[in-house]
Measured scan of single mutants.
Amino acid sequence: RSRTNFTLEQLNELERLFDETHYPDAFMREELSQRLGLSEARVQVWFQNRRAKCRK
């Protein structure tokens, strides 16, 4: 699998939701992934990586 390149719109939406909650539930992830045209797994990994970045 190659690296996912997020569009600016996708990143803005992901960051907006991250500001609301660092741990979106499965329903939120599924709804977001459909809206952004990403797989739920990519959304989940993005949040994992974003939380790690936040801890640094």
Rank of each mutant, 00 (worst) to 15 (best):
A41M: 06
E20A: 12
A52I: 04
N49E: 12
R1M: 09
V45C: 08
Q10F: 01
Q10M: 02
T21S: 08
K56G: 15
Y23C: 08
R3V: 15
E9M: 06
R55A: 14
T4S: 12
E31F: 00
Q34F: 03
P24M: 01
R55P: 10
L36F: 13
C54W: 11
Y23Q: 04
E9L: 05
Q44L: 12
G37A: 07
R55K: 13
Q48A: 12
E30W: 09
A52S: 09
T4R: 06
W46C: 02
E40I: 09
Q44V: 04
F18K: 01
E40Y: 02
R50I: 00
G37Q: 08
L11S: 12
R51N: 02
Q48V: 13
T7W: 03
E31P: 00
L17K: 14
L14I: 01
N49R: 05
F47P: 00
E15L: 01
R35N: 09
N49F: 04
Q44W: 03
V45H: 08
E30C: 08
P24W: 01
L36M: 10
D25A: 10
E9T: 04
F47D: 00
L17W: 05
R29Q: 11
L14W: 00
R51T: 06
E13W: 04
S2M: 09
E9F: 09
E40V: 10
R16P: 02
R50T: 12
R16F: 05
R3S: 15
W46F: 03
K53C: 08
Q34V: 12
E40H: 14
N5T: 07
Y23D: 11
E20M: 06
R3N: 15
T4H: 10
H22C: 09
A26R: 14
P24D: 01
A41L: 07
R55F: 03
E15I: 03
R50Y: 00
D19E: 14
H22Q: 14
E9W: 09
L38F: 03
T4I: 08
F6N: 04
L17A: 15
Y23F: 14
S2A: 06
R50V: 00
R55C: 15
L17T: 12
R35L: 04
P24H: 01
E13R: 03
D25T: 11
V43A: 00
N12F: 04
S2H: 15
T7N: 05
T21Y: 08
N49Y: 05
Q10P: 00
R55D: 06
F47N: 00
Y23N: 12
Q44T: 09
R29Y: 08
F18G: 02
D25C: 13
L32Y: 05
S2G: 08
A52E: 12
R42V: 14
Y23I: 04
E13I: 05
R16C: 05
E30Y: 15
R29H: 08
M28I: 12
F27T: 14
T21M: 07
E15W: 00
T7Y: 01
T7F: 01
R42Y: 06
L36V: 13
E31N: 14
M28N: 03
V45W: 09
R50C: 02
E31R: 09
Y23H: 15
R3K: 15
T4M: 13
N12V: 10
T7G: 02
W46V: 00
R42S: 15
E13K: 04
E40W: 06
L17V: 12
D19I: 13
E15G: 03
T4K: 11
L32C: 07
V45Q: 08
E13A: 13
F6G: 01
F27M: 13
F47L: 06
N12A: 12
E31H: 03
R55E: 15
N49M: 04
S39Y: 02
L36G: 03
N5P: 11
F18A: 01
R35Y: 03
Q44E: 14
A52F: 03
L17Y: 09
F6E: 02
Y23S: 04
R16A: 12
L36S: 07
S2D: 13
E15T: 00
E13T: 04
V43S: 01
R50H: 07
R1C: 11
L17G: 04
R55I: 07
F18W: 11
F27L: 15
R3T: 13
V43F: 02
M28C: 09
M28A: 11
Q44N: 11
R42K: 09
E15K: 04
A26V: 09
Q48I: 01
C54Y: 13
R3E: 15
R55M: 15
D19Y: 03
P24A: 02
L11E: 15
H22I: 07
F47Q: 02
L14Q: 06
S2K: 09
T21A: 08
R55H: 11
L32D: 00
F6V: 05
A41T: 14
S33A: 14
E9D: 08
S2I: 10
S33G: 13
L14E: 01
L11M: 08
A26F: 09
E20P: 00
F27I: 12
H22S: 09
E31A: 08
R35A: 09
D25R: 03
Q34K: 14
L11R: 08
K53W: 09
Q34C: 04
L11D: 08
L32E: 04
R35M: 04
R35D: 03
R42Q: 14
Q44M: 08
F27R: 14
R16M: 04
R35K: 13
V43Q: 01
A41V: 13
S39T: 13
E40S: 10
A52K: 10
D25I: 02
L11T: 12
F47Y: 05
E15Q: 04
T4D: 15
R29M: 11
M28G: 04
R3M: 13
C54D: 15
N5K: 13
A52L: 10
R42N: 14
N5S: 11
S33R: 06
R51M: 09
R35P: 03
L11G: 05
Y23T: 09
R55Y: 05
S2P: 03
R29L: 15
E30D: 08
P24G: 02
L17Q: 07
F27N: 14
K56S: 12
L14M: 08
T21P: 01
N12G: 12
E40Q: 12
V43N: 01
R1S: 05
R50S: 02
A52Q: 10
L36T: 11
D19T: 14
H22G: 07
T4L: 12
N5R: 08
E30A: 12
E31K: 11
W46L: 01
H22T: 11
E13M: 07
T4E: 15
A26W: 10
L38A: 14
A52N: 13
P24F: 00
N5E: 14
L32A: 08
E30H: 14
D25V: 02
A41D: 13
H22W: 10
E9H: 09
M28T: 12
A52W: 05
D25N: 10
N12C: 09
Q44F: 09
D19L: 12
F6Y: 13
E9S: 07
R55L: 09
K56T: 10
E20S: 09
F18V: 01
C54V: 04
E13S: 09
Q10W: 02
N5A: 07
F6P: 04
F18R: 01
S39A: 10
R35V: 05
G37F: 04
L14V: 00
N49S: 09
F27P: 15
E20K: 15
T4G: 11
D19S: 15
S33F: 04
Q34H: 07
R42W: 12
R50M: 07
L32M: 11
S39E: 11
L14D: 01
R51K: 06
L14H: 00
R51E: 03
W46I: 02
A26Y: 11
M28H: 13
A26C: 11
Q44K: 15
P24K: 01
S39N: 06
A41K: 14
V43D: 00
R29G: 01
